[in-house]
């Protein structure tokens, strides 16, 4: 294939038609991609048919256009790589749309449709990169690199500011919770003289036999309560239990009650008394 053979001048309408077609295909694909969500299924189907029609229309346009003109599938003078890229991308987009039409009726084709669509999706940036490379070359690379250098400084400044967050002070809400537990402990036992961090620590570290998954508080909260814990079964991260490492601990009365009600039952197999609760908070406030 050589580019210097005589050819008819392409019609004025051909290049605008090609651009219009490209916009229709790209727009259709974009809409299909954005509406793949469950809620927008009907729009997704519509966009899919749109893409399928656009891909087939391209073949019709190629037949209508001047040979070797803008609408020709293989244009003289174009890099081979771009021609192949276009062919592969169109085929993949077409297959993605076609498999979508089938998947609409046959659910087992869904996975195939997803795979093809994702492949097509990845080919699009590759296609854009190739076009940018061929048409812009060095100019583009210089601009991208220049922009990266200019934007790096403010980003660094912002990161530095974000790191300098002030530390938090002690919380009166925790004192109020402790005072309530002290009142209840006194009511239950007139000999109550105050909470003990040592008793709280023994609750925290005790190995129990009620529940094999959760033998101890330390199972999830770790032996060092200043460190983040991890739910023994779900793996969910738990903020540190110790107040020094997590100033928000024991400041929400409702949550404190809920956690004691649950975890005492799960780990110890019993309710915790007001004294137990106060001891426990006292221990973790001292850590």
């Amino acid at each position: 294939m050589s580019g210097d053979a005589p050819r008819a001048a392409p019609g004025r309408w051909e290049l605008p038609a090609l651009r219009l077609w490209h916009a229709a295909l790209a727009g259709g694909f974009l809409v299909a991609w954005l509406t793949a969500d469950e809620d927008t299924y009907r729009m997704h189907v519509f966009a899919g048919y749109w893409v399928l029609i656009a891909v087939s229309l391209r073949l019709g346009l190629a037949a209508m256009g001047t040979p070797r003109g803008p609408l020709a599938l293989v244009r003289p003078g174009r890099s081979r790589l771009m021609i192949w890229m276009g062919g592969v991308l169109m085929t993949m987009v077409g297959l993605a749309a076609l498999s979508g039409v089938i998947a609409d009726g046959v659910t087992s084709v869904e996975d195939l449709h997803e795979g093809l669509s994702n492949t097509a999706l990845w080919l699009i940036p590759a296609h854009a990169a190739l076009v940018a490379w061929v048409f812009q070359g060095k100019r583009l690379r210089d601009k991208v690199m220049g922009a990266a250098r200019v934007s790096a400084l403010p980003v660094l400044v912002l990161l530095g500011l974000a790191a300098a967050v002030p530390a938090q002070a002690a919380d009166p809400a925790r004192d109020a919770i402790l005072a309530d537990y002290a009142k209840a402990a006194k009511a239950a036992d007139s000999g109550f003289t105050g909470f003990s961090a040592a008793r709280g620590e023994s609750i925290y570290r005790a190995r129990n036999t009620v529940n094999a998954d959760f033998p101890s508080c330390a199972t999830c909260h770790t032996d060092d309560p200043t460190r983040p814990g991890r739910h023994a079964k779900t793996g969910r991260e738990i903020a540190p239990a110790a107040v020094s490492a997590n100033p928000k601990r024991f400041t929400d009365a409702e949550k404190v009650e809920e956690r004691f009600n649950r975890d005492c039952k799960t780990v110890l197999g019993r309710e915790c008394s007001a004294r137990d609760r106060g001891d426990f908070i006292t221990f973790l406030s001292s850590k």
């Binding site: 998954d213 959760f214 809920e258 009600n261 975890d263």
Partner: peptide
Amino acid sequence: LDNHFGESAAMA
């Protein structure tokens, strides 16, 4: 929720 997969997830 009293026995939520082997642990108590009781709440108000």
